[in-house]
Each structure stands twice: as C-alpha cells, then as structure tokens.
Amino acid sequence: MRATLLSLLSLANGALATVQGFDISHYQASVNFASAYSAGARFVIIKATEGTTYIDPTFSSHYTSATSAGFIRGGYHFAHLDTSTGAAQASYFLAHGGGWSGDGITLPGMLDLEGDCVLSTTATVAWIKDFSNTYHASTGVYPLLYTNPSWWSTCTGNSNAFVSTNPLVLARYASSAGTPPGGWPYYTIWQNSDAYAYGGDSDIFNGDMAALVRLAQG
C-alpha cells in the first residue's frame, strides 16, 4: 500500500487524470449500472455494514450488478465508535462483504467516519487504528478512510497518524477539493457531490485508470 500511495501522490502532483465513480447504499434501491458505466463511471463503493448488527439489504445485489457491469467495486462500513471496538466492527465488516483480494477489481474496504464526536480525540484515533490494523491483518491492505475536514479536525484533533498507511476519501461539496485535513498531502478520492446522475454520491479518483487498478491490486 505504501508504494501505491507514493504512486498516487505523483499522479496527484502532476494532475494527470481523474476517474469518475460513485457510492451508494439501500437509499438507492435501483441503480442503472450499465448507463453509469456508459457515461464514464468506472468504480463504485457500496455500503455493506454498520456497527456489528446491520447489513445493508441491497449490498449483495448492488455488488453483483456492479461486477456484471464491469466496475471496480468495494464495500464500506459506517462506523459507530460508541457501540463496540474498532476491531469488532472491522471483523463484522470483513465477514459481511468488506473483504479484499488483489484481483484488480476489488477496492480496499472503506471506513465511513462522520456524525457526532462521541469519543475523545485520543480515543477516536485509537478506535480508527484498531479498525484499520484489524482490517490490514486480515487482508494485507489498509482501509480507505472517508471523512470531511470538520469531522477530522474536531473528532481526531486533525491527527496525522494515517497519512502513510490509509488512502483518504475526502468529502467536500465544493468547486475544488481544497487542502486535505490531517496532514494528507493529497486525497485519493474526492466525494464532490451528494447528487450523482445515476444515484448516490459523486466520487472522483485522483489519478488515471491504471492507478485506480493499482489501488485495487493493493
């Protein structure tokens, strides 16, 4: 993963290319994956789990349909930091669709960090590390971390603990991505809108298609 991050950084600095993608959950019960692919989208991140008790009811069908349409795809987990440990939630995610294999079409799982700050900044960083290290121990890759600048600054104290390990998925609905939080020198994916034409949120990968495949390969 370190090599991938460095490779992506060089792409980001050179601003060589971007790849359109999107993310979805059960709120998008029906998605026209074929049309999204025809329009240029090449990756999709699909909600799999929350906490240790919830599985998104559309995850399996969305994942199968995305695969059939030719997408690079992966799952994401919505974190509940106050209900169980990071390790427990990573294990639940892995057991219900959040796994990874270096096949070039499966993205590392994504940890969705948003909402209220329910732990201290120190405890929040420790929780994320617990999740991330558990995921890495099982798969050999670190999960993507999804957050917005306000949440990261307030809830983690703008921690830079994940810069060299975890790719950043930056949520910022604006005309530009701006400066990433937490010392990340660049974002890997920018969620730039909550209204993608074919459902869910619009995501922009910070690199070309070859770099996206490398991310999927670990």
Rank of each mutant, 00 (worst) to 15 (best):
132 S>I: 00
101 S>I: 15
5 L>N: 08
131 F>V: 07
194 D>L: 14
202 S>M: 13
166 N>R: 06
201 D>N: 06
98 G>Q: 09
195 A>M: 11
176 S>A: 13
1 M>T: 13
13 N>I: 14
74 G>F: 01
164 S>K: 09
141 V>W: 07
175 S>T: 14
199 G>L: 00
112 D>E: 06
161 A>G: 07
80 H>A: 04
61 S>A: 14
105 I>M: 02
76 Y>D: 06
182 G>W: 15
55 I>R: 15
214 R>G: 12
86 G>S: 09
113 L>G: 03
102 G>T: 00
189 I>N: 06
11 L>W: 13
210 A>F: 01
64 T>Q: 11
113 L>H: 05
94 L>G: 08
55 I>C: 11
114 E>Y: 06
116 D>L: 02
177 A>P: 10
193 S>N: 12
172 R>I: 12
33 F>I: 05
186 Y>V: 04
184 W>C: 06
114 E>S: 13
7 S>D: 14
36 A>H: 02
135 Y>G: 00
141 V>N: 12
80 H>Q: 13
126 A>M: 04
138 S>E: 07
171 A>C: 12
57 P>Q: 10
119 L>N: 02
191 Q>H: 07
161 A>R: 15
217 Q>I: 05
69 A>W: 00
50 E>P: 02
147 T>L: 12
160 N>M: 08
100 W>S: 03
25 S>Q: 12
164 S>M: 02
159 S>N: 12
212 L>H: 04
71 F>L: 01
43 F>Q: 01
55 I>V: 15
193 S>G: 11
147 T>G: 02
35 S>L: 11
32 N>S: 08
32 N>Q: 05
10 S>P: 00
78 F>D: 03
194 D>M: 09
30 S>F: 06
104 G>D: 05
209 M>K: 00
73 R>M: 07
110 M>R: 05
14 G>K: 13
59 F>G: 05
8 L>R: 07
9 L>N: 14
169 V>G: 03
38 S>W: 04
143 P>K: 09
66 A>M: 02
73 R>Q: 06
83 T>M: 07
145 L>H: 05
98 G>E: 04
120 S>R: 00
200 G>Y: 02
139 T>R: 13
106 T>D: 08
186 Y>R: 13
137 A>I: 00
131 F>G: 04
71 F>H: 04
24 I>M: 12
110 M>I: 05
27 Y>V: 06
108 P>K: 04
133 N>Y: 01
130 D>E: 06
149 P>C: 06
70 G>V: 03
83 T>H: 04
58 T>E: 15
73 R>W: 03
141 V>H: 10
68 S>K: 12
185 P>A: 07
216 A>S: 10
2 R>D: 04
33 F>E: 09
100 W>A: 03
5 L>F: 11
68 S>Q: 10
101 S>T: 15
166 N>Q: 08
162 F>Y: 07
14 G>I: 01
87 A>F: 11
141 V>T: 14
84 S>E: 00
55 I>N: 13
18 T>H: 07
54 Y>R: 10
52 T>W: 10
179 T>C: 08
61 S>R: 15
167 P>D: 05
206 N>S: 09
36 A>Q: 03
202 S>K: 11
177 A>C: 09
28 Q>N: 02
57 P>S: 14
